[in-house]
Structures are given as structure tokens and as C-alpha cells.
Design a protein around this nucleic acid. Sequence first.
RNA 1: CGGAGUGUGGUGUAACGGCUAACAUGCUUGGUUUGGGACCAAGUGACUCUGGGUUCGAAUCCCAGCACUCCGACCA
Length: 426
Amino acid sequence: MRQSHLYTKTRKEAPKDEASKNAILLTRAGFIHKEMAGAYTFLPLGLRVLRKIEDIVRRHMDTVGTEILMTTLSPEENWKNTNRLDTVDVLMRTGPANEVSKQKSSNSYIINPTHEDMITPIAKEYIQSYKDLPAAFYQIQTKFRNEARAKSGLLRGREFRMKDLYSFHKDQDDLMRYYEAMKPVYMNIYRDIGIADDTFITVASGGDFTPNFSHEFQTLVDVGEDTIYLDRANRIAYNKEVVNDETAQKLGVDFSTMEQVSACEVGNIFPLDTKYTEVLDYTYSDHDGLKKYPYMGCYGIGPSRVMGVIVEKFADEKGLVWPAAVAPFSVHLISLAKEKDSEAGKLAEELYAKLTESHVEVLFDDRDESAGAKFADSDLIGIPMRVVVSEKSIEKGGVEIKERTSDTSEIVTVEQLLKTYTPNCE
RNA sequence: CGGAGUGUGGUGUAACGGCUAACAUGCUUGGUUUGGGACCAAGUGACUCUGGGUUCGAAUCCCAGCACUCCGACCA
């Protein structure tokens, strides 16, 4: 993509209405645009990163479930049926008709914060036999929660992206087998994204969901909202909310030997058991002909929050630093040619064409800006590899390459560059 | 939801209760420049968040509301 077609601009100054590192840098670099507290538009660069993250999540979820897309709106009835209409205090709903809306209808609809209340009736309609179990559905979409205090940029929004998967099982054993199998699947996602080293499976309270423990995936980061007790050697952690004598005894662990660290929750899994299937009177016919309640689990990951966590973890004083797997582009090609039809100008165009043809994701800075401005923007945007084409680089024998995280650059020939990025060609 | 703070051109800031609301940046035009956010010149752009009040006079003081930020509570 040509940088002139991004339409966004970088800024030198931090926005005055943001304080968190992720929001400041993503705004300065033109990845996101704030609409209100906790709600951001994803601009071209930001959307590319979000998609990369969601594609990784999708690839792994496809191995354990089937993708669907549920509605953003739901009737209040679904929430009445699960007795959650008055108990979930983050529920958002559309208003009745008013001066702005000329419609006569006084209906209001729930704007879904999560989808247990939606998926369970769907499963009830289609999954009625033990032969259909287990079953697992997932989706990636925007969720809405009326957070009392949205904060920290992408880390806690009123509107945010979420992957939610729901599984149904014939009994608790099958649920727990699936539940346990989900842990390595999640860790593989964090590995592919590039944050696995600092991400720990964390024992947490199941909240109102379950009398059992649930598990969170917590990534170490200073601005994290959670405090976890970390057993680094065994790569397991305990959310502070469950750290007490009772838990210590129950799990046979000694919290006093663990380090306390700040972390951000990048995923969670809950064994729901029959909480929702019972209240919705959802049964299946078992082998023995008896009607039984399916056991449920739910499993979440917030791609937009993960994006914020990545920024918090890797950004440096010059700007964003993206792990290769989620970077908006692989290569930032910068032309310092004085004239478009100069030798350097032509070479830059040629490289852009060849790399793009070979499906290398290239952001081509074809703007008429000074070298300093282009370098500063490149550092701010944080693409893993910078390739500079100029009269000077040609004089030295080719193009200059520099990794975003490196302080030094080197000159490689055009052939070497193409060989690196298009190994299949020639 | 409790507490604290902040609202001024697109962006970031300044302005004692008193002159035509200033500076930087951005944007436009012309010229010069070209390896770490270049320079010169001329332009463009703000009912100072909203509504009340105090005052001869309010961006500035007071009240209310709204928005945003931070701390806490909350976080299926």
C-alpha cells in the first residue's frame, strides 16, 4: 500500500484526552480514532493489526469449533429467560422512541455484552441428541458493555472486539476434557501472536458463573488491572481474588513463595456446567432415552484488548513495535529519491511492485517529505523491517535495511533483498 | 457510582477580571532545500464545552449540566 493512500497522518503531540501508552501511540501513529471514552474507530493501519490478531484466533478456533455470527441486538426476552435482565449491570439497551426517532415503537433491545443467552436457545433448537454432542460454536464480533469506567485506551472499552466460543457436552467429564484441551489451544494463540512468554494460565474465581474455579490468561504488563500471584517455575498463576487460606488448602499451594505482579487478562475460560441449560430447560436425549441437561463451557479472547497489550509490552520511546505476526505490514519501504524519475525513485517503484507482486505486505512511503520526517514516522508506526532506497544507498551497492528493534542498519543488494522476501522467485 | 483534575483554531499550548484571544504545529500558495520530525514569505483557521449568574467589563470568578483523564468501587 502506498502511504499516500493511508489518508491518516501521524502527530508529534500526544492527544490531551489520553493518558495510556497504547492510546497515545496508536492515536499518534494513526491506528485508531477516539469517538468517546472506550470506543475507537480502527483506521487503516489499526484495522490491519486487528485483523491479523483475529485471523490467528480464527485459525486456532477452527480446530475446536465452528464459526457463526450472532446478532448484536437481542430481545429483552432472552435476558428475562436467564434472569439476567436485572442482574447484569453492564447491559446496554436501545432507547424507546423519542424526538430524534420518529418511529412509534417503544421497543428497546439489548445490545449484547456476551452471548450465553443467545447461543443456548440456538443450541436447544438444533442439538437435541447425544449423537450431536459435543458441539462448539464461536464468533468474533463487537461486544458492548456499559462499563462504569472505561479506561486505558483499548484495554477497557465500552465497545470492543471479542471472540467467544460456547461448547455443549453430554456430561461434566466431557466438558472438563474439552475445557482442559482449550488451555494449550489458547497458549498457541498467544505464542503465534508473540506474547506467550509473558502469558500465564491463571486460576480465577468463576464469579457468578460457576462454583468452580475458572481460568484466565494473564499477560504481564505494568498497566494491568489485575494482580496475580505468579509461580514462574511452574508457569501458573493465581488471581489475587482467589488468594486466601481456603484456596491454599484446597489446591495445596503456598502463596507466600510466589511473586505478586500486575497483569492484563487477555483471555478466559469458564466451566458453566448446567447453569444456562437448566434455567432455559434445555435437555437432550441421551443413549438411555433419558432427558438430560447439556454441560456448557464458554471461552473468550478480546482481540482489541490484545492489541492494546501488545503496544504496552513492546513499544519504545520512538513509537510502536509490532511482532511480525501482527504487524500491519512486513516491510516499510522508504524512498528518499529527490525526483520520482531518478534512479532511486525508479528503483523504489520497482521494488514496491516486485514485493507486492510476491505478496509481501509493503507500506511504501512515496510521500514528498524530508528524510527525517519519514524516519520518525517509520519508527512511530513500528513495522518490523525498514528498507530505504536513496542515491546514497545505491552508491553503497543497493538498499539499506534496518529492523525496527535494531540500532544499526546494513546495505544489501537488490537481489539479496528480493531473495529474502521472495524465496520462491528465481 | 464516590473522590480529584481538565475543557481555548484540525492538533498541542498561552493569555493579571481590561486593547483586535497569542504561539507552535497542521492545512493552502510560491520559492529554496533533501539521510533523523528542513527554511523563507504570504495566506487559512476559535461565538474560549453548554446554560445561567456576578461585574462597567468574563477564556479568566460563582452555580448547574455535559464531556474527557486519573484514583477507588464495580468488572457476566
